[in-house]
């Protein structure tokens, strides 16, 4: 299931735009690949992120996976619930498993992300 209203990155993060702010999490495909998420490390609020920069990590099955920001901007909020309930990343990747809220520096970056249809095709075919 790929929600239609979101945008997607090649590193399997989703982006929901709300004005000048975006909410970022990882997709259902990504959480399924990772397996049971047991720890999530998120950045400090007010950190400046560049597009494609690692903003945190998730641990699952003895694997630590970097999380990459699809946009450039300033971290305005993090999902603190994930410290106690990392399993939300698996159970509700598009809702309770959200990770960070970022104030966009460049609105144009959103346009370069994939639509739901493009992302569905991308995960079927894999990266080129």
């Amino acid at each position: 299931m790929v929600p239609r209203e979101l945008k997607y990155s090649e590193s399997h993060e989703w982006v929901k735009q709300e004005g000048a702010m975006v909410i970022i999490g990882i997709t259902d495909y990504a959480q399924e690949e990772l397996g049971d998420v047991v720890f999530v490390e998120l950045p400090k609020v007010s950190r400046q992120l560049k597009q494609q920069e690692s903003f945190g990590v998730a641990e699952s099955v003895k694997a630590v996976s970097d999380l990459f920001s699809p946009v450039t901007g300033k971290v305005m909020a993090i999902n603190e619930t994930l410290a106690q309930q990392p399993e939300l990343v698996n159970k509700e990747p598009y809702a309770g498993g959200w990770m960070i809220k970022v104030e966009l520096s460049d609105n144009g970056e959103i346009a370069n992300l994939m639509s739901a249809e493009e992302y569905e095709k991308f995960i079927q075919e894999g990266p080129k």
Binding site: S11, K62, A63, V64, S65, D66
Partner: peptide, 9 residues
């Protein structure tokens, strides 16, 4: 035994 880091691809 082994352990993993995934850095994108």
């Amino acid at each position: 035994g082994s352990a993993q880091r995934r850095y994108g691809e």
